[in-house]
Structure formats: C-alpha cells, structure tokens
Design a binder for these strands. Structure first.
Lengths: 155, 155
DNA sequence: GGCTATAGTTCTAAAATAGAACTGTCAAAC
DNA sequence: GTTTGACAGTTCTATTTTAGAACTATAGCC
C-alpha cells in the first residue's frame, strides 16, 4: 500500500484514514476540540516529540483541518485553529469516545461527561439515519456502488 | 508516550485509539463490515503484508473485536468474525466514511451509497444527542470531568 | 548581558513496516 | 503415489517512522 496516495483511493474511508488514521493525529485533534491551540500546549499535554508534533500540525494544515493563525507579530508566533472541515471531524471523535466509554471502561466510570448546551442534559452521541431518524446498525445497511467507483474495494 | 498502556489512560478516546488508531486496523475493519472474513481475502483485497495482517488480526481478537472461528477441521482453518463489540464500531466507521464523502470527494461523486433497509432510502449518518435528538455540533457541547478521572487531560 | 518563553529544527537510536520467501496441512488432479 | 494448488500463517532482511534529546532563533524583562 502506498500511504502517500491513500487519499486518492476510490473509498471515503481510505481518504479519511489518510488524514486522521494515526494515533498522534487523533490525539492532537482531541486537544483541538478541548481548545488547545499552541505548539507548547500540545507538546506538554500529549508528551509527543516536538519533531512529530511539527510534522502532524503541518499535515493537518495542508489538509485544511487546521489553520495556522498568527497571534503575535514580534516575535512571529502562530496558533492552530480548527477550520469548518476540522470541526466536522467531531462525529468521528465523539463516536470513538462513546465506543471507549462503552467497551473500554474500568470500574471507576467515565473519564468525561458531555453536556448538550442546547437541551442542558448529559448525553451520549447516537448515530441515526438522515432519512428516518432511527439509530443505525451495521446489519441494516446495504451498500451500493456509487458514481465515484469503478472496480476494486471500498466502504 | 507508551503505546502499550494507551488503553489504560483516563480518556475514552485514547483507549479507542489504542485499539483502532492505526491505518491498517481501520482498513481491516472496513473489510469486516463488507463481510470479508478470511486471511487470504483480507490480504488480497488490502495488499497488506501477511506479517502485519497476522499481527493486526491477533490484536483485534485479543481486544475482543473479532472472534477466530474454525470453519474447517482438517486442515484447521479459521475465519474472523465481528463480535458485538466489533459491530459497535460501526458508528466510527460510518462517521469516517461520511466525512470522507463530504470533504475528500472528487468530481466523480461518492464511491459508495448506503441504503437503510429499515426505511428503504439512501441516507447519510447523522450524529444526534441521545436526550433531545438534535444533531450535535462541537461548540454546543460542554465537557465535565467524570468519576473515572483524577487530574491530567482527556476527551 | 543573562534569563525566560515560544516555536520550531536537527541529530542518532530504536521500533515498526514493507516485501519477499518459506512452512505445514490437506484435497484434488494426474 | 506424486504433483499441484489453496489456505493460513511465520520468518527473514531492508527501509521507513518514531522516540528522545539537544540545538536554533526571536524577543521581552531584569
């Protein structure tokens, strides 16, 4: 497999994996959603090596997930802010958090609780069908080839 | 960071990342949801090296995502089947597919279309609040420390 | 001038992955 | 009864990635 062209595969999962499919990237994004924005802040909260952090931030900027915004002119300093494309990753992060809550928990209970400001309640994220609103289950979904596909595999 | 204890961090995202946070694992799971079950089938559809495929399947079995089920006694042969814990990863996969459809598409359209058998329509997955049913957005969610958490970071 | 803060870059060592070849079991074909 | 092929791996070396630590650069403050 050539990882450098994974984002051009005729499969939306592959394309997403090309961008967020590694450990550090997902942990960096977690920090972004927790309002972390600066190099030193990412580095100290994640204990990632500075080299890799630099690489990953560049990649996220290149893919349009983060914007590198100056917050100081002299000396030039930048912070990293989620774009809309980045904010749209929220369901992925939340789906992962929820699976972890459900299947990887210990006896102490959840590390974090989520409150929906709109309704004021503590909630779980639920994935539903856009058409009928019912919760989705793998075995109730049938997959068809779409226009962006010739041969090969996908999901 | 010590990847071998990432599944014990007080953060549900980290714990999930410990299990599915690498490229190959996510692609293998895609195949699982497409009903691929056998070693040779994974290997030829993904072009993964046999060594890594073997490693990743072992890991998924160890974490209870897949079950290794004999389908032939002589010679002994096994196939890999999603457990309920594995099936529950579906929202993560679908969230990633949907993000790819939305943000990584080309002019040819989607690689795959999804039909909800329950309602018969082509759909998109939508993540909603379990309490009020409204679609979730990152900035409408407030995070609280839960019981499974002392100091440090999380999501 | 010396100290600190911030945001990186550069270097070497260790670990993970790629790629190809090899092993072992059994069924069916010749 | 020997050969071929399918299947499910394991083993080996070469390349790529990542870890960990040190270094660079700019500027404010004392």
């Amino acid at each position: 497999m050539k990882w450098d062209t994974l984002d051009e595969e005729p499969c939306s999962l592959s394309r997403t994996v090309a961008v967020v499919g590694d450990r550090w990237t997902l942990l960096i994004l977690r920090e972004c959603f927790l309002r972390v924005r600066r190099f030193e802040a990412f580095q100290s909260s994640l204990q990632i090596t500075r080299h890799l952090l630099s690489e990953r931030l560049k990649k996220l900027v290149r893919f349009g997930i983060l914007r590198r915004v100056p917050y100081s002119e002299a000396p030039k300093r930048y912070e990293y802010i989620l774009t809309q494309k980045g904010l749209d990753l929220y369901p992925i992060i939340m789906a992962m958090v929820h699976w972890g809550d459900t299947h990887m928990g210990d006896e102490r209970g959840r590390p974090l609780l989520h409150e929906h400001k709109t309704c004021g309640k503590l909630f779980d994220p639920v994935m539903v069908c856009s058409e009928c609103g019912e919760p989705l289950h793998a075995r109730q979904v049938h997959v068809h080839a779409g226009p962006g596909r010739r041969g090969a595999d996908a999901a």
